[in-house]
Design a protein around this nucleic acid. Structure first.
Lengths: 229, 229
DNA sequence: ACAAAAGTGTTCCGGATACACCCATGG
DNA sequence: CCATGGGTGTATCCGGAACACTTTTGT
């Protein structure tokens, strides 16, 4: 069996990141326009290869950082894709990750440099290789996650209004939610701090800003509280 | 960027299978006793390496077949594990799969030959490398799956009693279920065929046998029916 | 006749949903 | 003073949970 190690075929291990952002209205993904062959000029996910000295999570971090300048981003492994000819250049296995980022914080210059652009899910162009499937899987994973835990605080700025939070949920779940029911549920979770501050940009009256209370959330989660919206 | 292909490090890609079975009482997993170094004599999952001419699903199939003699088994990719020193011999990434098999159908001789043995989840020994974590993840995935679709018909013989089905659910979910509520729910799903046959082994009265109706299930699933138990 | 498991319905409660009006403010 | 979005509570409904007795039959 030891021989099996040496006798076995090594492969290139790629990573691809589905990067989600939320621009106060819609869920978006960040795509790059390839300026190299194969598939030059087509849109794709940002990707890279695993290096010897890092594990997959670290590689995903590095790749995400390269494009956005962001560190300590929410990243989760999605699935591994291995169709033999998925990459026409060489046999590669790709491990897909998805990231949730605050769309206001990424480094504009960097993403310009990579020819990257934000697309709303519905208007995203067709992607190279098997990237379309990856995106589809990522969305359904995000939707699932939403049904199990209060998701999306990574996608919002630190201070946000209830309206924004609701729009985020609506755009992840692809359905309209009732304002009162939504607020009741969120309040029942008791994981937000209502600030004295108001966001005056959206109306004359202004709407209160909230912050996510990470500690409270952690405690509730440990107690097995159900955060379903 | 093309250079990146050649400049990047290739790695060994391993697969490990968590094989679930159900022996009418308990959920079990199939483990093998290693008869080679490293970690000779310790228990582990069955594993293998990806070959050039196959994708991951095919490799998992092949590995499972090698141990159990079974084909066309329910197999699902779980997660990829990549800690740098997870395998002391050489850097390997492992993609874990889990399988659901009918415990009565596997090839006894084959598994003896590999020094494999069924363990109930609670009594399983500690495993090599990161295999314990894989098993933990697999169980929680199975539990999740159970909450979304009628699971476990792969784990049961073609004909089974309601009692058996209930025990299976109980052992996956780790909780006692109410007999009447369980039967009502399963019947409401309307995906079983009640046979005229009875299983007389468990009682004097005998209990009716049921079969899973794959076609009905597929149709209901397509209609978005909710199979939560 | 009795032991042992199979089989069968109804009530009750809580959480989810549907729904409409007043408030505060800047122009 | 009015237009705009912000904020709030209640009645109803449905599905899940709790619950106990009768039936069958081999010994």
């Amino acid at each position: 069996m030891l021989d099996e190690y040496s006798a076995s075929d090594k492969v290139l291990l790629a990573l691809d990141c589905i990067i989600f952002g939320f621009d106060k209205e819609e869920l978006k993904i960040l795509l790059i326009k390839r300026d190299f062959e194969p598939e030059k000029g087509k849109w794709s996910l940002i990707g890279g290869f695993l290096k010897k000295e890092e594990n997959l999570d670290e590689a995903a971090d590095r790749i995400l950082n390269k494009l956005t300048g962001l560190k300590n981003v929410y990243l989760e492994q999605l699935h591994s894709y291995s169709k033999i000819d998925r990459d026409p250049v060489e046999r590669t296995i790709s491990v897909a990750y998805y990231a949730l980022i605050n769309i206001e914080e990424h480094n504009e210059k960097l993403i310009d440099q990579y020819g990257a652009k934000w697309f709303s899910i519905s208007e995203a162009p067709g992607l190279i290789f098997d990237h379309d499937i990856m995106v589809k899987h990522a969305i359904s994973r995000l939707r699932y996650k939403t049904s199990k835990e209060p998701v999306g605080f990574e996608l919002l700025p630190p201070k946000f209004t209830m309206k924004q939070l609701q729009k985020l949920y609506e755009s992840i779940l692809c359905e309209k939610l009732d304002k009162r029911n939504f607020i009741n549920k969120i309040n029942a979770m008791d994981i937000l701090v209502k600030l004295d501050e108001k966001d005056m940009s959206s109306s004359r009256k202004g709407s209160f800003l909230y912050q996510f209370d990470h500690d409270k959330y952690k405690r509730k989660k440990a107690d097995g509280f159900d955060f379903k919206v």
